[in-house]
Nucleic acid binder design. Sequence first.
DNA 1: TGAAGGATTTGT
DNA 2: CAAATCCTTCAC
Length: 203
Amino acid sequence: MHKTSQIVEASWLGRPSPQVAPELVGCCLVRLLPNGQLIKGLIVETEAYAPGDPACHAYRRRTARNAVMFGPPGFTYIYLIYGRYCCLNLVTDQDQVPSAVLIRALELEVFPESLGYPPPPALQRIAAGPGKLCQALKIDRSLSGQALQPDTGLWLEHRRDQFHQTLKQQTQLLVQTTRIGLSVGENLPWRWYLRTSPAVSRP
DNA sequence: TGAAGGATTTGT
DNA sequence: CAAATCCTTCAC
């Protein structure tokens, strides 16, 4: 018999984002489309954004756009970047502490044939980058502020035991480095990725 | 009301 | 390396 995947509860995200972000690597992001199609991928790259961090969208003050980051954990924060792409963040830490984790890349594991994704090796880079990830999972700003749970069509599953075993054996597997694309706060080492994954946006 | 700039991606 | 493209924020 096999163990069912455990859904991540909001309380698990209720910790500082630099603590949650590395632990999200290895978890699965699951998307259930309105038409019933299921897309699922292993998170292979994340970045943390936290209070006092000049690169955080909530650094200056609360606005209509970033308001959800000030709320309780377990919700999505999705914004439009460069007028073209959406980026998915998961709100972390306790209520009133504005912080989030940017999900930057996935290794797709489950997806419908009918979506027309290319064959490997191109398939492995379909969700390599925050904008491409949202494209692949059909995530846009209409999902921003939603709870991460099955009835919203977007949720998280905990790491499988096998992943923990691998992490234990391969000690250099999880790489910590600086974040990408910033003009401020670029020195903070708040990006994590799986060294061996072909889906990482920028190894 | 306007201007500057952005947690990206793609093609030159 | 620069363009695409539009939303958000901040200044006036």
